[in-house]
């Protein structure tokens, strides 16, 4: 785990009183949080508490109802379509299911964002970059495979490779370890740390996997029913006397023990 110095770091994402509704259902209620440069911020919470909605609002895949989202100095909600495309070039988004393009090979999947975001690269540079990221995620032999030939863990790794290939400064991970076995989950968590070190990214990691939290978190924010319930570091959470947090960590501990 890498320690972040919150006081000396600059803010890369600043969310202020964010509200999001689907019809009459309030998913996010006055959520305010900051992501500091170089840190891994884990957003923890039960399913349906608005964690994924939060990061989708950051890249404006979803429009928020009110509140401000400032990403790398840009006010996301006031950006025009072409400006939001420019901003998205600096943000990597790892989707829960990987979201690999089924009709393309692994190589084509990796080349897809690169050819669009880094149009200045030559064919050789593109090829080198594809091979480099595949080496980084430990799957150099998967280059000509199609997504249906890959296992769940491999899909997540390739998806991660597709995200980091454009050198984003911010990474948003939507439940990176969901649906994976404990060993693969741990490998993915380690990979998140390696990416943070190597590419100097600032990341928001949405998860409810406590092992992943222990491996990657510099800071934790817990959401409950669309509200920020608690903010702190891993030590604060593990030693919390709060019933919800305690049960969350305790249940996950016993689950991990069973799995081992």
């Amino acid at each position: 785990m890498i320690k972040s110095d919150k006081k000396n770091s600059e803010t890369v994402i600043n969310i202020d009183n964010l509200n999001k509704k689907f019809g009459t259902l309030e998913v996010l209620k006055d959520v305010s949080l900051q992501l500091f440069k170089g840190e891994n911020l884990v957003v923890l919470g039960k399913s349906g508490t608005g964690k994924s909605v939060l990061i989708k609002c950051i890249v404006r895949l979803l429009d928020s109802n009110s509140g401000k989202i400032n990403v790398l100095g840009e006010e996301v909600n006031s950006l025009k379509k072409h400006q939001i495309h420019e901003l998205r070039k600096k943000i990597g988004f790892l989707f829960q299911g990987g979201a690999l393009y089924d009709s393309m090979t692994v190589r084509q999947n990796l080349e897809f964002p690169l050819r669009r975001i880094r149009a200045d690269l030559s064919e050789k540079e593109i090829d080198d970059k594809v091979k480099e990221v595949l080496e980084n995620v430990g799957l150099p032999d998967a280059i000509n495979k199609i997504p249906s030939e890959l296992s769940g863990g491999m899909r997540k790794r390739i998806s991660l490779a597709r995200t980091i290939i454009v050198d984003p400064s911010i990474m948003l991970y939507d439940e990176p370890t969901t649906g994976l076995d404990p060993i693969t989950s741990h490998e993915i968590s380690m990979l998140i740390n390696e990416i943070q070190k190597k590419y100097k990214t600032s990341s928001i990691i949405i998860t409810h996997d406590i092992e992943c939290v222990r491996t990657v978190a510099n800071r934790i924010v817990m959401l409950k029913e669309g509200l920020i319930y608690k903010e702190g570091n891993l030590h604060d959470f593990e030693n919390s006397s709060d019933e919800l947090i305690h049960s969350f960590f305790k249940n996950q501990n016993s689950k991990t023990t069973k799995n081992i």
Binding site: L61, R88, K89, F95, A99, Y101, S103, V166
Partner: peptide
Amino acid sequence: AELGSMRVTEQIDAMEVSSTN
């Protein structure tokens, strides 16, 4: 079916965050 499955599996969202319309 193809675009529907791309929507469901978030491939269209992935395209959008890759700055592709």
